[in-house]
Simulated assay, not measured.
Amino acid sequence: MGAFERTFAMIFGRLSTEQQVTLLETKYIAGKALKAFRGLVETEKDSVRSILRALANRLRISAEDETRRAKTRWESLRIAESQTVEDFCLLLDKVERVAYRRLPSEELSLSKTAKLLGAIAGNEALRCMIDAKLLESPENEHYDICRLLAIRHDMSLKEFREKKEKIAVQCFKCGGYGHTARISPTLAEAPVQRNALKEPNFKVESIDMKGFEVKLEEREKKVVARGRKIIEKGKIGAAHVDLVIYSGACISLMSAKTWTVFTATNEPIKLIEKVSVEISMRTRTRRLTFYVAAVDRETIILGTEGFKAMGIQLKIDEPPRDVRIVDEVKLDRHGQKIVGIVVEGIIHKERRLCLITPTSRCLTAGVCQVNSEGKARIKIANHMS
């Protein structure tokens, strides 16, 4: 919640408090949190911070509650059938960090090692190899060694399955195996004519739907007979979708309902198309990808995805603060005096102490406490002539 609050302030800090509260309610709160929000009194809705604090109290989001929930989840952790060992290890680290944050490193390593060995219990050869390796290592390194060996073994199995499945792919054009219809050897390779000034010629051919349905049913029966799936579960952004694996298609399609983009004020943007064009800026010319949107503006937005190609870097340097004396001061040899100074820049409440490093070696370095206006008084001394 703290990370969300900081990120929200960075993105929408320039909006008014009323706009921030409206945006928080309409776009970022759902489920139980939305019900709790609607039950807040008006005095608790003064700002985003007060709203989040009130929601934390009502939803019992505290360190103790999170620890209890994490311990319960730890006890029920099991590797899923479609889950990789790497993802399971990442989940172990996430839950353990909350559930057992007070345990020493040796106890944590042994606990996570036991969970991981239970997840790979079906592979006896891998278990024996890991057990032999753990006998040679200290206890605080057991989990790291076990995770490394298990992930490498899982990746090797995945590569082997992918090669095997590639061989089993059947072409819809020629009926052969090992390639798709787009790269079928029976297709004649025609030269590609590229001309940016001409409009592309799109054609739509009609097909016999009855014959297509019969062929599709036969194809589905063959797929079922081989035990392979042609629909996979996937995720685009925050939307869970079904991905249809179809080697007869030349392009990938998505519905307009799935592809929806919102502005910072929670208004939808109508995306017209995606284009790849050359753009020149200063001394560079690069081909970048832009999304054409139905918005009323004369300038274009160059996002962070194009920064590397155009040689753009974002950096905020923090040089030492400049300190200047309010009035001119003249000191005799071994003389001392208290003077007023001004420290440049914004002074934060928690960073009021300022280190003074003189540019002349005859003066003494010191630390002063600066007020909100950047003013302070320090003692200077002349140690030379």
Rank of each mutant, 00 (worst) to 15 (best):
P319N: 02
A36H: 07
A9S: 10
E205M: 06
A63P: 00
I300R: 03
S82T: 15
I301V: 14
E165W: 13
I325W: 05
L55F: 06
G374S: 05
V192K: 09
I338M: 04
T285M: 09
K233T: 04
I183D: 10
K274I: 15
Q193F: 06
G175D: 08
S76C: 04
A190R: 14
P268L: 01
A56T: 08
R78C: 02
E81S: 08
T283W: 07
K221E: 11
D322K: 11
K32L: 06
A239R: 12
E66L: 11
A125S: 15
C250E: 07
C171E: 08
I338Y: 02
V48C: 05
T43S: 13
T7I: 01
E278Q: 14
V261A: 08
K133E: 15
S62M: 07
N195K: 10
R333V: 00
E205P: 00
S247A: 12
G311K: 11
T26M: 03
I11C: 03
R282N: 12
K115N: 03
I61E: 08
D87K: 15
Y177Q: 13
E232Q: 06
L34V: 04
M129F: 03
G248E: 11
E344S: 12
S184V: 06
K32I: 01
G311R: 11
E189H: 01
I347D: 09
T17Q: 13
G311N: 14
C171V: 02
S360R: 09
Y291S: 13
L271W: 02
K222W: 06
R49Q: 09
K379H: 04
A168Q: 13
T43Q: 08
R182Q: 05
N382I: 00
L135N: 06
T72W: 10
E96A: 09
D144C: 01
G175N: 09
I151V: 14
T7W: 01
S111M: 14
E86W: 05
C174W: 10
